[in-house]
Design a protein around this nucleic acid. Structure first.
Ligand SMILES: [Zn+2]
Ligand SMILES: [Zn+2]
Ligand SMILES: [Zn+2]
Ligand SMILES: [Zn+2]
Lengths: 169, 169
DNA sequence: ATAGCAAATGTTATAATATAACGTAACATA
DNA sequence: TATGTTACGTTATATTATAACATTTGCTAT
């Protein structure tokens, strides 16, 4: 049984993921056009591969995908695309996993906190005002100027806990 | 001129760092004795090297130090010591830097958030109740069970900002 | 159209971080 | 002192990332 008692950013197993992908690529195209930067075929494909799921994916996994598709790719190929996507806010890097995940709010100024489920591997991106203001508040108190934040919480999401309970009885 | 208007966890340049080191090693010895785990000569030395400063230090930097001291060390040597120190809560890993820093509260149950100054390289460990409760609060709302947290804020500390202002006029 | 330039990508090599696998030494304890 | 366990040594290799330079692609100005 599925509880549904928790509003969560974790995508359910049966959500229409094609819409996630289409929306992400669409937003990326709009953003790049507006900024006058080039979302080349390669960059577009890398972004699409990252959006293949909501699980952060490693650079060398992406590289392998490209290779399977017949693209003659070496590490710099993928890292340059990742740099572009990171610099333009189209993806995020998950430092605790050395992996990359699509940004849920490309083009919009936002804080990004990640809850990462070790069971399903998915990462949920949040923009929680309380977490953000708590951090900014502390920074202000100690006179610290913030440049970058890494907020990554690992554990088990509600869906996966339900499934684990179901399995046990 | 030094402002002093900010209470901060960043150690000042003139603090008595020998006390930091002595205290850290002392606490580590007590903790390991109490737990019945062995703070061997190697582990003790690695912890001491990590506490050489408040700057997170890389595994291969530690390895180089050991080598300079005449210790025949290979990567597994250092990583095993790091694992021990991590597992026993004597150090923390800074994921955004692939580096390790001494824990300020060994043996005590505590949250750990890090503010990391890119100018002086130092990391200040905090246990900020508001940041912690904001994260726990969000986890509760989405039914997420937390296992590990990576909270790392990079930027410039108050001391370094003062110095930069002084230098410019 | 096309020459010239800048940006993007290809290519080769290597750096930096981390772990696997197996043997040896040190330590506990009985 | 025999025995088992934990720690450490050693060699090899996996994983993640970047440096340096060559080539191609796409835009701009003639
Ligand atoms: Zn989706
Ligand atoms: Zn999950
Ligand atoms: Zn100190
Ligand atoms: Zn500083």
């Amino acid at each position: 049984m599925k509880s549904n008692k928790h509003p969560t950013n974790f995508p359910s197993a049966d959500h229409d993921h094609r819409r996630c992908v289409a929306s992400a690529l669409d937003k990326a195209e709009s953003y790049c056009a507006a900024q006058g930067v080039r979302l080349t075929k390669l960059r577009h494909r890398v972004l699409e591969l990252i959006w293949a799921s909501h699980r952060p994916v490693g650079a060398y996994d992406l590289l392998q995908q490209l290779t399977l598709e017949g693209h003659k790719a070496a590490p710099p190929t993928i890292y340059r695309s990742l740099d572009f996507l990171l610099n333009n806010g189209l993806i995020h890097r998950i430092n605790s996993l050395n992996a990359y995940v699509g940004c849920e709010h490309p083009g919009l100024d936002h804080a990004a906190q990640f809850f990462i489920c070790g069971a399903c591997g998915q990462a949920a991106e949040l923009d929680d005002a309380r977490i953000e203001s708590a951090i900014i508040g502390h920074a202000k108190r100690i006179g610290f100027t913030i440049e970058r934040k890494t907020i990554e919480v690992s554990g088990t999401c509600a869906n996966c806990q339900d499934q684990q309970r179901d399995r046990q009885g």
